[in-house]
Amino acid sequence: MLRTIHHAAIICSDYPRARAFYTEILGLRIVAENHRIARDSWKLDLALPGGGQIELFSFPDPPPRPSRPEACGLRHLAFTVSDLEAACARLARHGVQVEPVRTDEFTGRRFTFFADPDGLPLELYEIPEN
């Protein structure tokens, strides 16, 4: 029945800052960008490698996230990378703080967390290319 995740939707507090973070720092390609005048809202569709998308929304005065990351609901978004060290270095060059690298006790894979401009927890999960 289910085949894959089509998209994850994120609401940001500062659209230009979030747009720059996801496109310039994370390097996601813009699929579509629309301003919805009636809602004073932007909707930015971003392509993820592998076919999924992120929908980045802006709304006037969105409420803050209750807590990080153990609030009920979506805990974090995880992205695979083939070289965790290189991905962390790229983030650091852009002033993004990255947590110390850890190893998943069940899979043996290395991972780390960082945050988007609104504090949304994001994960890098290393799966080396064959």
Rank of each mutant, 00 (worst) to 15 (best):
Y15A: 03
V98E: 02
H94W: 12
R68I: 15
R65C: 03
S82M: 08
P16A: 02
I10P: 07
E24H: 00
D61P: 06
F57A: 05
S82G: 09
N130G: 13
G119V: 05
Q97A: 14
A32F: 06
P16Y: 02
H35T: 02
D104V: 05
F21P: 01
I11F: 09
S41D: 05
L2G: 12
G50M: 13
Y125D: 12
R39Y: 15
V96K: 01
F79P: 04
A92C: 11
T4N: 13
R68W: 12
L77V: 14
F59E: 14
P121S: 08
L122S: 03
G50A: 11
P69F: 13
F79R: 04
D118F: 04
L74P: 07
R109I: 03
G51M: 11
L2W: 10
G27M: 01
A87G: 06
V81Q: 07
K43G: 08
R109F: 07
P121V: 12
L48Q: 13
I54M: 11
R110G: 06
A47F: 05
N130Y: 06
S82L: 00
N34M: 10
Q97Y: 03
A38C: 04
E126H: 01
G52P: 07
A78S: 09
R17W: 00
Y125A: 02
P63R: 03
D104L: 02
P128C: 08
A38P: 00
H76M: 00
I127D: 01
Y22S: 06
D61W: 04
E33R: 01
S82W: 04
P16I: 01
G119C: 08
P117E: 06
L28T: 00
E123T: 03
D40H: 08
Q53P: 00
L2I: 15
F106H: 14
A18W: 14
V96C: 08
L44W: 10
R36D: 13
V31D: 14
H76E: 06
A86F: 10
Y125G: 04
V98I: 03
C12W: 09
E85Y: 00
S41I: 03
I54Q: 02
P64G: 09
L74H: 00
A78L: 04
E70C: 01
A9E: 15
L56S: 02
T112M: 09
A18G: 12
L56A: 09
A20H: 10
R75K: 13
R29L: 05
L2D: 06
L56H: 01
T103W: 04
S13L: 09
L84E: 07
L91H: 05
T112L: 11
